[in-house]
Every structure is written in structure tokens, then in C-alpha cells.
């Protein structure tokens, strides 16, 4: 690969404090503007993998010999660089209620930009832009509790967009969404110009959005390749608790 990787994992392994080995020796490179899906059965380590991209897990991803294992744009995701790497990687969590903790939509979208240390004027401009890009402009003064799941998800996304990340990491973005909200989300994500890393069970969503798929099972990467090739391969899919989507059958 000659292209510089925006996201790189080098032999990433992770064990939870309770002793469970969640990730084993994962290596992969994601190029800029690539859209990658991480699929696999529940408990495969998808969320753990995503959280490592943002340095969200308690023990820093460092090997015994002290070499960092996750790199964003060439910068190691370790404690001294977390500020910089988190600025570049935006994270959308599965449950919007976990992410929206402010009493109003405006405060919540402003939270990220404020933490970046921007001045008030710029923060307000970013709030406007973030909400406009997800079609929620009129909702600034609303309480997140009054919104529907789909609307809350979009506000979360606006909060992430307001930080203007170059990589967007999404954990189960379509869970609990009705078809219309799912379609709206797809449109918004297609318009996003940066790199995408999506963990999901929604394979149709993957077909519509991503150009590359990683199959994760038992903490290891089991397959890696173009979306249609991987998802239409019954051997890979069956072995790892997945199903070939209807749209790709009989080809």
C-alpha cells in the first residue's frame, strides 16, 4: 500500500480487567476516505475495537515493549496524544441517550467544540453547521428527552460533526431506528466526506454505505475485502454467525 493510512492497527490485543481476551493480534490499515464496515456476531469484539480507535478503554493500548498499537494519521493513540487523536476521530455511540447528556440540544452540540477550546463565535457557528448538516436546525432549544430516537441519533451526529473529525467511528448506528430514520441516517453518512468505520449487524446498510468489510469473530479478523465479495461468500458468512443478505443471493 502506497497510500498513507489514516487509521492503523498494529498487532492490537486487548484483555479486559476481568480476564476476558477481547481482541487478539489485530492488524489493519484504513486509507483516507475509505468506508469500512466491521461485522461479526455479538461478543466478537466490535465495540472494543472501535473504542480503541478513540483511546476510550482504561488500559492504554500499549504492548509489553512499549510500542503503541493504534495510530491515527501516524499519531499513536496513547495518553499524551489523546487530545489530538480524539479531535480527529469522532465517535457515535449505540444509545443516543448515553451521548446526549445536556439539558438542551444546543448545549449538547456545543459540548465538543467548547472542549476544543474554540471561541464562542466559532462554537455557535459550528453548532449551526452541525445541526444543519443533519437537518435539525430548528431544534436548538429543545430538550433531548422530547425527541424521537431517530432525531436524537441525528443530534448526536451533529455533536460529532461539530468537532469536524476526519474519521467517523459508529457503533451500531441503525439499532432501534425505524426505516425512515435509517434512510435519513444513510443519506447523512453518504454526504460525509471523511473516513468511516462502522460496526453493525445491519448488512443492507453496509451494502449501501461501505466499500470494504472486516469480519471480526472471536477477537480476530477473519476476513477483509470488498463489501460484495465478502458479504456474498456463504462460507465466510455462515462460519461467523452471519447470513448472506437477500440482495446478494443467487449471484
Amino acid at each position: 500500500m502506497t497510500e498513507p493510512a489514516i487509521l492503523e492497527l498494529r498487532c492490537l490485543s486487548f484483555r479486559y480487567p476481568n480476564g476476558r481476551l477481547a481482541l487478539r493480534d489485530i492488524s489493519c490499515r484504513v486509507a483516507s476516505r475509505e468506508r469500512v464496515a466491521v461485522v461479526g456476531p455479538s461478543g466478537a469484539g466490535k465495540s472494543t475495537l472501535l473504542m480503541h480507535c478513540n483511546g476510550l478503554l482504561p488500559s492504554p493500548p500499549v504492548q509489553q515493549d512499549g510500542e503503541a498499537q493504534v495510530f491515527v494519521n501516524g499519531i499513536a493513540v496513547t495518553k499524551p496524544h489523546l487530545r489530538e487523536t480524539r479531535r480527529q476521530v469522532g465517535f457515535l455511540f449505540q444509545d443516543p441517550d448515553d451521548q446526549l447528556f445536556c439539558p438542551t440540544v444546543r448545549d449538547d452540540v456545543a459540548f465538543g467544540p467548547l472542549n476544543l477550546g474554540l471561541d464562542q463565535h466559532e462554537v455557535l457557528a459550528r453548532v449551526e453547521r452541525g445541526l444543519a448538516s443533519v437537518g435539525m436546525s430548528g431544534f436548538t432549544a429543545r430538550n433531548p428527552a422530547e425527541l424521537s430516537t431517530g432525531e436524537r441519533k441525528r443530534v448526536c451526529l451533529a455533536g460529532v460533526f461539530a468537532c469536524e473529525p476526519s474519521v467517523l467511528v459508529l457503533d451500531e448506528p441503525t439499532s432501534n431506528l425505524d426505516p425512515r430514520a435509517r434512510r435519513q441516517l444513510l443519506t447523512i453518512l453518504r454526504a460525509f466526506a471523511g473516513t468511516l468505520l462502522v460496526a453493525t449487524h445491519d448488512l443492507d446498510f453496509v451494502i449501501d454505505l461501505c466499500d470494504r468489510v472486516l469480519v471480526l469473530d472471536d477477537g480476530q479478523v477473519q476476513a477483509d475485502g470488498p463489501t460484495e465479495r465478502i458479504l456474498s461468500d456463504p462460507l465466510i458468512m455462515d462460519r461467523h454467525g452471519l447470513e448472506v443478505p437477500w440482495r446478494l443471493r443467487g449471484r
Binding site: 473504542m51 478513540n54 476510550l56 476521530v89 465517535f91 448515553d98 472542549n115 462554537v123 468537532c163
Partner: peptide, 24 residues
């Protein structure tokens, strides 16, 4: 458990323990 997840979501958006709010 939700508080732990929310804390992570705050960290992901640059939270470092100091509170900054909009003036107006």
C-alpha cells in the same frame, strides 16, 4: 453502567473535567 458509557461519550468529545459553557 450508563454513567460509565456517558463518561466515555464525553471523553470522546474532548472532555477533560473542566466545564466550559456558552456565555449567552
Amino acid at each position: 453502567e450508563r454513567a460509565e458509557r456517558t463518561h466515555r461519550a464525553m471523553l470522546a468529545r474532548g472532555w477533560d473535567g473542566s466545564i466550559r459553557s456558552l456565555d449567552d
